[in-house]
């Protein structure tokens, strides 16, 4: 029994990270009907910026330095928000009225540019996060081990998801975001600055992505320039499972995917983990072509 709960804790941790990244895909898709393939690489860029801050300000002592980690998060979020806005201006805005495929190609190009940029700046090698910048505490609850890092990831992701949900559903600007997602022309006629909404989505998504990316780095204590593709793909699947364009869907999809991956790896075969994940995606799409929450909610964001 403790094995099952341990797998659930492991799965929830990864699931929280997937959900944070998936939100970036789903929000952009909700407004622009565009899959932002560069999103996974933006998250990785966040991990690298965080790593640079941590190693240049501390990490040598081996004792917990919460403020350094906090600063790393702030720096990563600011940098990735800027990168997101630049991406929108340079790669997507000029193609706003072009064929949809052009924007997808532009997204793939941006993804390669960011990935190779990271490789050129930080080297192609696996970089290691210093140990001990976060408290090395773990709790044993009936045979299940939860580390401080895991708890931090689960709690912060849940808080962020809840805040985003409240922001989008209960504020004026959130209403504008939802309106732009339903009908951009009508929203414009109602006096909503749709371009500002689009920029805001390219700030919110990457901000969450940067946090997700830094979580990956802190949890596995590793960063490699090309890991954006794997995490991006998984988060993209999570967004589709939940119903792309739907914010609660991305959260649900991320958590489900993390749990499913852990259980499949633990009880069936870690060799087939990826294949099983894609099998799940196909099965869900066969039964519900728009994803789990895709149809129930009228407005898509």
């Amino acid at each position: 029994m403790s094995t099952l709960f341990q797998q659930l804790v492991n799965g929830l941790t990864v699931g929280g990270i997937y959900a944070l990244i998936a939100l970036g895909y789903t929000m952009v898709y909700g407004i622009l009907k565009l899959i932002n393939f560069a999103h996974g690489d933006l998250c990785v860029l966040g991990a690298f910026i965080g790593l640079t801050v941590i190693t240049s300000l501390g990490g040598a002592s081996g004792s917990p330095e919460i403020w350094v980690v906090g600063l790393a998060f702030v720096a990563a979020i600011i940098a990735i928000c800027c990168a997101g806005v630049v991406l929108e201006f340079a790669a997507y805005r000029p193609l706003r009225n072009a064929h949809r495929l052009s924007a997808v190609v532009s997204a793939l190009g941006a993804s390669m540019m960011i990935e190779n940029g990271i490789m050129l700046i930080w080297s192609p090698q696996t970089l290691v996060f210093p140990q001990g910048v976060l408290p090395q505490i773990s709790w044993h609850v009936g045979g299940v081990v939860i580390t401080f890092t895991q708890l931090m990831i689960i709690v912060i992701s849940l808080i962020l998801m809840a805040s985003l949900y409240l922001y989008v559903n209960h504020t004026r600007f959130g209403t504008a975001i939802r309106a732009s997602a339903i009908d951009q022309d009508a929203a414009r006629l109602m006096g909503i600055n749709v371009n500002r909404v689009i920029v805001s989505v390219f700030i919110l998504g990457p901000a969450l992505g940067a946090i997700g990316g830094l979580f990956i780095g802190l949890y596995y204590r590793q960063a490699v320039f090309d890991m954006g593709w794997t995490y991006g793909l998984n988060a993209f699947i999570a967004a589709i499972i939940g119903g792309i364009g739907n914010i609660p869907g991305a959260m649900l999809g991320g958590l489900l995917l993390g749990l499913f991956n852990a259980l499949a790896g633990g009880y069936i075969s870690s060799t087939w983990q990826q294949a099983i994940t894609f099998g799940l995606l196909i099965a869900i799409l066969l039964v519900r072509p728009t994803g789990i929450l895709g149809e129930r909610v009228a407005e898509k964001v």
Binding site: N10, M227, A264, G266, Y267, S269, S270, Q273
Partner: peptide
Amino acid sequence: RAYIKSGSQDFTSVLTSLKS
């Protein structure tokens, strides 16, 4: 006999079932 996928970073599911 257990297998991991090289480079996948998360080996906790394999290790947890090993632990049991």
